[in-house]
C-alpha cells in the first residue's frame, strides 16, 4: 500500500520545459532562470558565473582551457558551453603555431604567436576560476530542473506542522 508523503518532502516531477531551461543554462549561465521567469535570480547567477569564467580566461589566457592536457579540469570547465568553443579555438591556435614553426621559440623577424601559454600561479588560478564557474553552473542547472517558478502565496493560511 503506497504511503502518502508529507507536502514538504514531496518532489514535483520536472517538466520537459525545465530540461530545456537547464540546457539554456548550460549554453549561457542564468538564461534558464530567466526563461522560468526568475529574472533577478537569473541575472545575479548569470553575471556572477560569467564574471568568474571570464576572469579566469583573462587571468591565464585561452591556454587554461585545454582538453588534451587537463582532462579532469576540462570536465568542470565544459559545464559552461562556451568553454568548448574556447578549447576548440585554443587547439586551433596551438596547431597553427606548431605547424608553422614547430616547438622551438620564435626567431627574430618572425610573427609573434597568436597566444601566450600560462604557467605557474596564473595557469592555476585561471584553471580554478573557469572550472569553479562550470561547477557553479551545474548547481544552477540542477536548480532550474527542480525549481517551481510559481511565487509562494504568502496570503495562504499556514497549516499546523507545515514548514514556513
Amino acid at each position: 500500500m503506497p504511503v502518502a508523503q508529507p507536502p514538504s518532502t514531496r518532489v514535483r516531477p520536472a517538466s520537459r520545459w525545465h530540461f530545456i531551461a537547464a540546457v539554456a543554462t548550460w549554453l549561457l549561465p542564468g538564461l534558464g532562470h530567466l526563461l522560468l521567469g526568475q529574472r533577478a535570480r537569473g541575472w545575479i547567477i548569470g553575471v556572477t558565473i560569467l564574471c568568474l569564467w571570464g576572469g579566469g580566461l583573462a587571468l591565464g589566457g585561452v591556454s587554461v582551457i585545454d582538453w588534451s592536457r587537463q582532462r579532469a579540469w576540462f570536465l568542470g570547465q565544459m559545464l559552461i558551453a562556451p568553454s568548448i568553443a574556447v578549447a576548440w579555438q585554443h587547439d586551433r591556435l596551438k596547431a597553427r603555431y606548431l605547424l608553422t614553426r614547430g616547438p622551438q621559440p620564435a626567431r627574430e623577424g618572425e610573427p609573434e604567436p597568436a597566444f601566450e601559454p600560462a604557467y605557474g600561479r596564473m595557469a592555476e588560478m585561471g584553471t580554478l576560476y573557469t572550472a569553479l564557474a562550470g561547477m557553479l553552473n551545474l548547481l544552477a542547472m540542477i536548480d532550474v530542473i527542480y525549481r517551481d517558478p510559481r511565487p509562494k502565496d504568502k496570503s495562504k493560511p499556514q497549516l499546523a506542522g507545515e514548514p514556513a
Binding site: 568568474l52 583573462a58 589566457g61 596564473m122 592555476e124 585561471g126 576560476y129 557553479l136
Partner: peptide
C-alpha cells in the same frame, strides 16, 4: 584573453573574488 595577466605576486588576493563569486 591570449596572454596571462602579470599578477603572479598577488595570486593569493585572487582567492577573494573567487570566494565572493561562490
Amino acid at each position: 584573453f591570449t596572454a596571462p595577466l602579470p599578477l603572479e605576486h598577488y595570486w593569493l588576493w585572487l582567492l577573494l573574488p573567487l570566494v565572493a563569486g561562490v
